[in-house]
Design a binder for these strands. Structure first.
Lengths: 226, 226
DNA sequence: GTATCGACCGATACACTGTATTCCCTGATG
DNA sequence: CATCAGGGAATACAGTGTATCGGTCGATAC
């Protein structure tokens, strides 16, 4: 083929610089903005002006990307304060605040084994902060607080989404689910639940989280004290 | 209108008898056998000798199917025994056993609002079993136990899967992750964690679950007693 | 300086997903 | 008997994660 009709080598756009960190950061941005289901390898790649397959040079699987995202969030979670109770309490609150910043975190937390550096550092910090407490008491205590936090933030985010889905107002929510609950309660099949709704305490999210956490910490304190 | 109260369409005797219950049962069978990712509308339909679109006469969305599956499992979860502590403890254990029968349940629990009949019945039963306890104390206690259980079973299943993925033996697991942990601990960046691994208590899954639960129940007891 | 080779990036391909739409058959009705 | 409505099934579509392929470029061997 003659030179004249052979097309020039199309000058390819200079390959964008890439790094695992940049990929994770872009993914987190997407997830923060539009939820976890907005994180697809194609969209992440597009956000970085890169072909989808480029990412496989940095991660082997999408699950690995999610693991990296989770570990990145753990960098924001550290215990503060003095004493074991302060440490556990602050760790729980820090986790909850991280979930508020990254709602998708609630979907992933506890769902896959976490051995990333930031997760380990977070664990290291809390174990260290437990200071004088005997390991035989400290380990189950930390595990229990972690478990409680996982469940609590999941439920909190679930509720928040339900409210937002129906119209971002609590009154709207009650207007949507209210009639259904009214009707099912009217059947008389759930008298105790009906009583809770009528006469029970109506705590907001902050209070609910703190109340449960305090119960658990009280139990731990009793075990440690004696 | 919500799934729970929407009536099923008339039973067409024509090709293959179908029912919401049959669909849910088939889905659960698939999930039990091959995990949640084996539950696709096409596979469920195929298991019932039915075209995929048939299912949309009974559910509006795949999420609704998952909700139905979760509610079906809640039918297996009831508190037993006398007294509030027995009730909460048995509820927690029952949930955990349900998760052992249906590992995928751990992936869904706490992830979406649950207002299905079996879930409500489970809540009704536990509230009723709290008997004489003041509502202001009972409600946060139940919420806390629920949160703890969600987190605890998630972590337990996650661990179980990790072990199974590497070779279904605990020694295999340590052979796979061990070297990595050895190396990262050898860096000296996580001395407290290293000490836990070396000198800490090594509880099995049963003991870990019970230990955390007992801590929480102790805290609740202190609140209720005074 | 030239030829070869290896790495790597982008495009394409594949199997699969949830769901909207269309089409056709069948059974009921006028 | 003709018409019509409704429901099951096939098709269609946009999207997913990932395997494979092809070509191009830079570095290396002679």
């Amino acid at each position: 083929m003659l030179v004249w009709e052979r097309p020039e080598p199309l000058d390819r756009p200079s390959p964008a610089p890439l790094s695992r960190d940049g990929i994770v950061r872009a993914s987190i941005r997407l997830a923060d903005a539009d939820g976890l289901e907005a994180v697809s390898l194609r969209k992440v790649a597009a956000a970085l002006n890169v072909g989808p397959m480029r990412l496989y040079g940095y991660i082997a699987t999408k699950d690995e990307l999610l693991d990296l995202m989770v570990d990145a969030v753990h960098a924001e979670i550290r215990p503060t304060g003095d004493g074991w109770r302060e440490a556990l309490c602050s760790l729980a609150e820090a986790t909850r605040h991280a979930v508020h910043r990254h709602e998708w975190f609630a979907d992933l937390i506890g769902g896959r084994p976490q051995l990333g550096p930031h997760t380990l550092a977070s664990g290291e910090a809390v174990v260290a902060a437990m200071g004088g407490v005997d390991l035989d008491a400290a380990v189950p205590a930390i595990a229990a607080v972690n478990a409680y936090v996982i469940g609590a933030v999941r439920r909190e985010i679930t509720e928040r989404r339900a409210e937002r889905a129906t119209g971002m107002d609590k009154r709207q929510w009650q207007a949507t689910f209210g009639p259904y609950l009214e009707r099912t309660f009217a059947t008389g099949r759930f008298p105790a639940l009906a009583r809770v709704v009528r006469d029970g305490p109506h705590l907001d999210a902050d209070q609910t989280f703190r109340a449960g956490l305090d119960l658990l910490l009280d139990g731990i304190e009793a075990r440690i004290a004696h």
